[in-house]
Design a binder for these strands. Structure first.
Lengths: 205, 205
DNA sequence: TAGATTGTTAATCGATTAACAATC
DNA sequence: TAGATTGTTAATCGATTAACAATC
């Protein structure tokens, strides 16, 4: 999706699975087979019309679903998201943010009102909330996630450094674990450096 | 790793592959086989000593490698990372940040000095830089990543919403693509809602 | 010794790749 | 029609799971 938009911005109108594959580091087969899971978006002998394909993907990804979100925790990360991240572009409507800090309450960040955390339950009961964005400290996150789940919120975008629910939970969770990500990078770099020094003791690809 | 630390904090001393699997939503086999890629950390008939295992994983992940990092772009996201993210705990030493905004230059955020972006090249030439954390707007990110790569920086923690290098590049990149993440969530939620409404037109798992 | 649980080998499953008929 | 490229079926490959001998 991201790549298709880039191509579109650069004036491309069509693209073949071979081109897409080369640009993304995938095989043409993979492009075609993955897309075919969701339908037939290409034209034989021509390729994929970029506008058409990205339109279809948008629908599949739910960008047209008009989902409502709220944000919990207007600290540094929460603020950074509200200010910098374009929820709109992902088809998400950011409705409200909640915090316990009285300094923040009743202010607005980038057009989004900050409410007292005490009002959270009431808000969720009276408004449709599809996605909760969690930017809280660990303990508060678990507590609030459980509450929200109970109130019917199904999806969580989790910036806390914890698993919110046990594996058997049916909540939909997308974790953004910064430390996992950085450690993965650290691992890849460390591994490469070791390989360069002692090229004979590697295991497992 | 994260889970082992949690167990440790809760007073656990040993854990079996069956327990770990249940807690993480994996099969015991997977736990054992994945760990065995890197060595034999358990004891037959006993399980894994948590301190010992997490110590071993730390080394594997490079937490003991003492890597140096710099951060580019002290805007909202950059600031949030500097203030809230514990690089230390991942074994990373955050040495310096760079920005073009004269308001930021020569100040400090959370103990990390902000320098003028003009000094970047000079700094990298005179100091070891293992990891560059990119919190820049797209265009600037590509430019700076190319420069850093040329100066010998191998690893990039990328908070830009773009691919920094073509797939064939040998740079080590860990992307944190917020919009990808949110769209994945949006997809899962949309898919579930559709399934509930029309339970008969699903494809591909 | 009996019980538990590992590390590893073999069996199964799913995902990726290759091939090709269909078709624009 | 010839050339290009899709969507899909079959072949290959790798990853997950199951099984079990080794051992604490």
């Amino acid at each position: 999706m991201r790549h298709l938009e880039e191509l579109h911005d650069n004036g491309w109108e069509k693209v073949s699975s071979a081109q897409l594959g080369a640009q993304l580091g995938l095989t043409p087969s993979q492009i075609r087979q993955d897309l075919s899971c969701f339908g037939a978006f290409g034209q034989h002998g021509y390729g994929y019309d970029i506008t058409q394909l990205s339109g279809a993907l948008k629908t599949i990804l739910g960008e047209n679903a008009k989902l409502n979100a709220i944000l919990l925790g207007a600290g540094n990360i929460g603020k950074a998201l509200l200010c910098n991240f374009c929820f709109e572009q992902c088809g998400i409507c950011m409705k409200a943010a909640f915090d316990i800090n009285p300094e923040y309450v009743s202010t607005k960040i980038f057009g989004v009102g900050i409410y007292d955390a005490k009002e959270l339950e009431n808000y969720v009961k009276n408004n449709r909330v599809d996605i909760a964005v969690l930017c809280l400290p660990k303990a508060a996150a678990e507590e609030n996630a459980a509450l929200l789940k109970q109130l019917g919120v199904e999806a969580f975008w989790n910036f806390t450094n914890t698993e919110l629910f046990p594996p058997e939970s049916d909540a939909i969770i997308e974790n953004v674990h910064f430390s996992d990500s950085l450690l993965a990078l650290s691992y890849m770099l460390t591994e490469r450096k070791e390989k360069n020094v002692e090229p004979n003791k590697r295991l497992c690809g």
